[in-house]
């Protein structure tokens, strides 16, 4: 469910598929592994995520908090308009750094 790429010290996680109540536990485990590896800069690319629900939002909030605890940071990019609207409605667009493109997210990261 995650393809990984690197840009210097930034780990780019390209999520594949829906993030919902059934897929969130697997995603949480992947994020736990990334934290265990002490990866501090993480960019999540949503270009292949057509759908997210509240359990998916919770998984991302958890990841953000864990990263902040180890002095890291998280950026999100490439969301479809509908997926982005879920972040906007819930005001989570205030909590997360969301960029339109991967390139913009990588700037000054």
């Amino acid at each position: 469910m995650i393809k990984e790429e690197r840009s210097n010290d930034i780990l780019i996680c390209i999520l594949e598929g829906e993030i919902n109540i059934n897929t969130s536990p697997d995603l949480r485990r992947e994020f736990e592994r990334i934290i265990r590896d002490n990866q501090k800069k993480v960019l999540i690319d949503f270009s292949n995520v057509p759908y997210i629900d509240s359990s998916g939002l919770a998984t991302l909030i958890e990841m953000l908090q864990r990263l902040r605890k180890i002095g890291g940071s998280l950026r999100l990019a490439n969301m479809s308009q509908k997926v982005k609207s879920v972040f906007e409605i819930t005001k989570l667009a205030k909590l997360f750094e969301i960029a339109d493109t991967r390139e913009k997210a990588l700037e000054n990261f």
């Binding site: 629900d53 509240s54 919770a58 909030i61 908090q65 879920v86 409605i89 819930t90 005001k91 909590l95």
Partner: peptide, 22 residues
């Protein structure tokens, strides 16, 4: 209200809010 600043980092409590919004 899950959109209040104090509730933004909470891991639950958004389901009914999303339903009412959408």
């Amino acid at each position: 209200d899950p959109t209040k600043d104090a509730n933004l980092v909470k891991l639950s409590g958004r389901g009914v809010f999303l339903i009412k919004s959408l």
